[in-house]
Amino acid sequence: MGFKLLSKLLVYLTASIMAIASPLAFSVDSSGEYPTVSEIPVGEVRLYQIADGVWSHIATQSFDGAVYPSNGLIVRDGDELLLIDTAWGAKNTAALLAEIEKQIGLPVTRAVSTHFHDDRVGGVDVLRAAGVATYASPSTRRLAEVEGNEIPTHSLEGLSSSGDAVRFGPVELFYPGAAHSTDNLIVYVPSASVLYGGCAIYELSRTSAGNVADADLAEWPTSIERIQQHYPEAQFVIPGHGLPGGLDLLKHTTNVVKAHTNRSVVE
């Protein structure tokens, strides 16, 4: 069995187990497998329904001669939608809004960016022009300005110390501490036991640490421990890039980060 097929099978099995364990909360999309990078042309966006009122959005972007996937989250909030992270750029984010209108038909009224990198804030200006209120932590807003990236308009308070959590509509926002970046936030959907790890969490097929220019490698494993301790009931975990899975993604990420750190020390 090929690795790609095995990865998709694991996603399907995880979703099936969740649907059985929580039949009222989960209505997993039966329309197909989780979209992969090879299936999404740059400039297009796919939506994948995880649970009743919960979707991931998947886009792709060219970077350094390669094409990478990027995940975000959409959560229903009454007759409105909360968006977590842009679709990595203005063109993708405009396509995301169009796809949401086509498939869901509810307005996106608020959006949260989970850290300051372009795959999370690139497209904020498109959201703002569409009347979406954009939010991020003060740290993310400051770092985005320093980096020359787009800056969300509103500040999220109460997320300055490791372990801080605040309720934001249908989700809980959690600051686990520094990891992929010093400002990275985690998003949890309690009604569906869905954990969105953003770039602080890796997919299972990833074996290298990737972009760690703004990471705190020493603190990252401790931050992941905080996530595990705060959300032990999480059933569906979405990484910032690639295929979702279960809580095993947290341990896998820790292993990859520690291996990278150990290699760096040896070198």
Rank of each mutant, 00 (worst) to 15 (best):
residue 159 L to N: 00
residue 193 S to Q: 14
residue 75 V to E: 02
residue 51 A to W: 07
residue 262 N to E: 13
residue 224 I to A: 04
residue 190 P to D: 09
residue 53 G to F: 07
residue 57 H to W: 02
residue 112 V to S: 02
residue 122 G to M: 13
residue 66 A to I: 12
residue 139 S to Q: 13
residue 196 Y to L: 05
residue 213 A to S: 12
residue 165 A to L: 15
residue 160 S to K: 14
residue 221 P to A: 11
residue 113 S to A: 13
residue 139 S to P: 10
residue 136 A to I: 03
residue 201 I to S: 05
residue 58 I to S: 11
residue 85 D to R: 00
residue 126 V to M: 07
residue 173 L to C: 04
residue 263 R to Q: 14
residue 151 I to A: 07
residue 153 T to D: 10
residue 242 G to N: 03
residue 184 N to Q: 00
residue 35 P to N: 07
residue 246 G to H: 08
residue 35 P to R: 07
residue 4 K to F: 06
residue 97 L to V: 01
residue 159 L to I: 09
residue 98 A to L: 14
residue 230 H to Y: 09
residue 39 E to C: 06
residue 156 L to I: 10
residue 178 A to S: 11
residue 140 T to S: 07
residue 262 N to Q: 11
residue 192 A to R: 10
residue 264 S to K: 13
residue 187 V to G: 01
residue 15 A to R: 13
residue 200 A to C: 06
residue 41 P to H: 09
residue 79 D to I: 09
residue 72 G to F: 04
residue 5 L to Q: 15
residue 217 L to G: 04
residue 93 T to H: 02
residue 49 Q to H: 11
residue 28 V to D: 10
residue 141 R to Y: 04
residue 120 R to P: 02
residue 164 D to K: 09
residue 82 L to Q: 00
residue 107 P to M: 07
residue 26 F to A: 12
residue 162 S to K: 14
residue 86 T to K: 01
residue 267 E to L: 09
residue 265 V to A: 12
residue 225 E to L: 12
residue 165 A to C: 06
residue 191 S to R: 11
residue 156 L to A: 02
residue 230 H to D: 07
residue 256 V to C: 03
residue 132 V to G: 01
residue 144 A to T: 08
residue 1 M to I: 06
residue 265 V to I: 12
residue 181 S to C: 03
residue 55 W to T: 02
residue 81 L to N: 02
residue 252 H to W: 05
residue 21 A to G: 13
residue 121 V to T: 07
residue 233 E to C: 05
residue 125 D to S: 10
residue 104 I to F: 07
residue 10 L to R: 11
residue 243 L to E: 15
residue 59 A to P: 05
residue 53 G to E: 09
residue 19 A to S: 15
residue 54 V to S: 04
residue 140 T to G: 03
residue 34 Y to Q: 08
residue 48 Y to E: 09
residue 214 D to L: 07
residue 172 E to W: 04
residue 56 S to D: 10
residue 149 N to R: 12
residue 266 V to F: 13
residue 91 K to R: 15
residue 119 D to A: 05
residue 191 S to M: 11
residue 20 I to C: 09
residue 91 K to D: 15
residue 84 I to Y: 00
residue 209 A to D: 06
residue 112 V to H: 05
residue 118 D to T: 08
residue 236 F to L: 09
residue 119 D to M: 01
residue 173 L to E: 02
residue 119 D to V: 04
residue 7 S to C: 12
residue 235 Q to K: 10
residue 260 H to P: 11
residue 35 P to H: 07
residue 247 L to E: 09
residue 81 L to C: 04
residue 107 P to H: 09
residue 204 L to H: 11
residue 80 E to M: 07
residue 157 E to L: 11
residue 64 D to F: 10
residue 2 G to P: 12
residue 193 S to D: 14
residue 65 G to W: 06
residue 18 M to N: 15
residue 259 A to R: 13
residue 42 V to C: 07
residue 118 D to E: 09
residue 77 D to T: 02
